[in-house]
């Protein structure tokens, strides 16, 4: 498989998908009841002000015209103005997206590390005590909703044991590092403010652990199932009968074929947690993108809704391309099929 043409092909497909998504969300956001201009200005505003705003937002034009106006602006990098924050939407995105991205990255690191470790140990020792504990954890982790974990963690780690900070990104005694990447941990490192970095890191622990619990449960379960399945395969018996040490068999010969389904699920989870993190961001008062999108929905902030959906959609498409490349790298069978196709 030649990598560059493949990526180009996938990116081209993604553009069509995103165009379709934009038409869908554009139409949906405009046909649901409620006048965005009235909502933005409040019930006390005079009718002429509402009319003026409707004119400014092109709400009186036919839908296709509205869409074309939006699209031509968007292609120029102008996503319109938010009627809630009264700022260009693109500025809001630049402010809020990195904060969520930071959480997603951190929780992904946690979930990869833990799910691989737990899944591999449980899969290799199926039906042992540890494996049974993992199974119980998996069921609980998948079935208990995220907000329950969030509240439990807040209560125990934040309130009872007072081990970790619970709200926001930084304690008040530290000054916020300047906005460079938008990810505060990296910004703090760039300016060399180690104290702020450590404090921010502590703030990240609870929300990202909360975010990763169901993912760890899911991923470990899938890895465990794959390993148990592949453990019966002749190639594992063969490697054993050649005297290859058990740890090497587990972490090389068994892990590589077993981890492939986990990687594809993981891609879904990463992109999902970008859009679906508003509960966590609300509970932990994290000024992130999920919360921003949710506020846009509740206030019928049309430009912000479309922008947040499109950004999450683009993120989704990108992550999926990356995941497909990783899978093709892991599994030569997929690579060979792609080449001939």
């Amino acid at each position: 498989m030649k990598l560059l043409p493949y990526i180009a092909k996938r990116l081209l497909y993604s553009i069509f998908v995103l165009l379709g998504l934009s038409i869908l969300i554009f139409t949906l956001s405009r046909v649901i009841p409620g006048d965005p201009a009235r909502l933005a200005l409040g019930p006390m505003a005079p009718q002429w002000a509402v009319d003026q705003l409707r004119e400014k937002l092109h709400l009186n034009d036919p839908l296709p015209i509205q869409y074309i106006i939006w699209l031509t602006n968007a292609l120029r990098g102008d996503l319109g103005e938010s009627i809630v924050s009264k700022r260009p939407v693109i500025e809001d995105v630049i402010t809020f997206f990195p904060a969520s991205f930071e959480l997603v990255i951190f929780s992904t690191i946690i979930s990869i590390a833990l799910s691989v470790l737990i899944g591999a140990m449980a899969g290799r020792r199926a039906n042992s005590l540890f494996d049974n504990l993992v199974r119980v954890f998996s069921y609980i982790g998948i079935s208990v909703p995220t907000f329950v974990w969030a509240i439990l963690f807040l209560f125990f780690f934040g309130y009872i044991w007072k081990m970790l900070p619970t709200l926001g990104q930084l304690s008040t005694e530290f000054t916020r590092p300047p906005f460079i990447t938008g990810m505060m941990s990296i910004d703090a490192l760039i300016v060399g403010d180690l104290g702020a970095f450590i404090d921010h890191f502590k703030h990240m622990i609870l929300p990202s652990v909360t975010m990763s619990i169901s993912r760890i449960a899911q991923d470990a379960k899938i890895l465990r199932a794959g390993m148990i399945e592949n453990l019966k395969k002749d190639y594992i018996t063969s490697a054993t009968s050649f005297g290859v040490p058990e740890s090497r068999i587990t972490f090389k010969y068994l892990m590589k074929p077993s981890i492939i389904p986990m990687v594809s699920i993981m891609g879904m989870e990463i992109s999902g947690s970008m859009g679906g993190s508003f509960i966590i961001e609300t509970i932990f008062n994290w000024p992130g993108f999920g919360r921003y999108g949710m506020w846009a929905m509740l206030n019928k902030d049309l430009n912000a809704i479309i922008a947040s959906v499109m950004i999450v959609g683009a993120f989704f498409a990108l992550i999926n391309i990356v995941v497909d490349i990783i899978i093709a790298y892991l599994d030569p069978r997929i690579r060979m099929v792609e080449r001939s196709a």
Partner: peptide, 15 residues
């Protein structure tokens, strides 16, 4: 050492 019945199954497909 042992040679297995099905050579396809006895060789790890991803290595």
């Amino acid at each position: 050492s042992m040679i297995f019945q099905d050579p396809t199954a006895a060789l790890n497909p991803v290595f």
